[in-house]
Design a protein around this nucleic acid. Sequence first.
DNA 1: AACCCGAAGTGGTCTGACCAATCTTGCACT
DNA 2: AGTGCAAGATTGGTCAGACCACTTCGGGTT
Lengths: 233, 233
Amino acid sequence: MGEHTSVTRRAVDEVKAMIASGRVGPGERLPTERDLSARLGVSRSSMREAIRALTTLGVLESRHGAGVYVTALRPADLLETFSVLAEVSQGETLLEVLQVRRMLEPAATALAAARASAEDLDRIGSLLERMEDAPDTVCADTVTADLGFHQAIVASTGNATLAAINDGLSSRTFNARVWAGHREAGLTAKLAEDHRRIHEALLARDPDAARAAATVHVLRVERWLRADLSGGG
Amino acid sequence: MGEHTSVTRRAVDEVKAMIASGRVGPGERLPTERDLSARLGVSRSSMREAIRALTTLGVLESRHGAGVYVTALRPADLLETFSVLAEVSQGETLLEVLQVRRMLEPAATALAAARASAEDLDRIGSLLERMEDAPDTVCADTVTADLGFHQAIVASTGNATLAAINDGLSSRTFNARVWAGHREAGLTAKLAEDHRRIHEALLARDPDAARAAATVHVLRVERWLRADLSGGG
DNA sequence: AACCCGAAGTGGTCTGACCAATCTTGCACT
DNA sequence: AGTGCAAGATTGGTCAGACCACTTCGGGTT
């Protein structure tokens, strides 16, 4: 009958409670591992496992020799674990991820067209140039610029939560595959065209055009993935 | 100069590699903690911390006395950590979360209108009745039915990734606050009306109507939250 | 005042032991 | 032979204490 809660689980909950109740705020330092384990009546090993769990969740951060700190608790901190999905996913799940991006990116791009600052637009523009500068190299730089281009757009909506989620859905390895695939099919130009269209819509501050351009782009990637999965998958 | 990677970190990467390379597949059992620690040349404590990290991420699952297993690696497994965001978030971030839901739920509801099976519609209908049966009680049952209603809709899109993300964005405690708030403002009826409208659109298999109904619903919640934050914060 | 260094504090790792839940084996009983 | 249960083996959970590696900070030197 006894509710056998694991000792470590209890420790995790205690620390969570400390944060939720405001006893320790974002950025502040926690008591020593040895202190905490003594207070909560658990061994240091169990305390460390609890801390490890909260570190993995992005709630805590350990600094060797300096102490354990609460993170800023910003969405980006808590959603870092999110990227595991895009990393591990394959086949069908990858299509599902793209379907979600098909819902988010057009809306986000439209929002960006209305909200982006002049500096945002500058950065987005320079990333676009970096992509077009090296059209023959499939190298990491192109992929980085591509990822940065879309991340910069989503970030310029001012919604950090949205940006963190969208980043998590965009994995580097997947993008690299797309670029390689497009090169084969000779569609790199189409990709560049998509990006230019999106950029122009942002400069024109035209949400509708931005939404349409983003939709076209995601659909193109989705169609490619579908063909890739049924073909060479 | 040496790249001092933490021992535990290395253990985490090793196990990740074992899974990525297919040496152990979803649902399969890992070697013993003692075995693993010996093979990787780390102590059992460090090995346990590595396992704890991967357990937190939803990649592994420990069963006392039985062994450590790889999860099914379904999106729902990997996105369980996601709910921490909705739990911990407050104020501004909560608005950001709602803005993301404003992008996802209308699209998801429209998709559900096209894809939901007869059984899905039955379940959604019965959850709607459960909400309307007890309009005077703010009790847990109402909130549960509310959460279940929306989750059932998103789940009936057939996109497990989408469902897992949307679930993560809907926290129980937040919904409870909304229901309480709506009771104060006497807007419980409006909520019920929203839900009925959504349900009818699904039954009519009308994606446009479903999208509109879902948009109205999320906007209503968002407007309430805005007022709540500036008022009784 | 600026710099250097060492002691104290703190997280990181290791060892070995014991507890608790589960699984396996094999004997006794029907 | 088949069934059921009990004892042992297996495996994760917890604990204790020790030592290492890094950071911090203050006293001493230049």
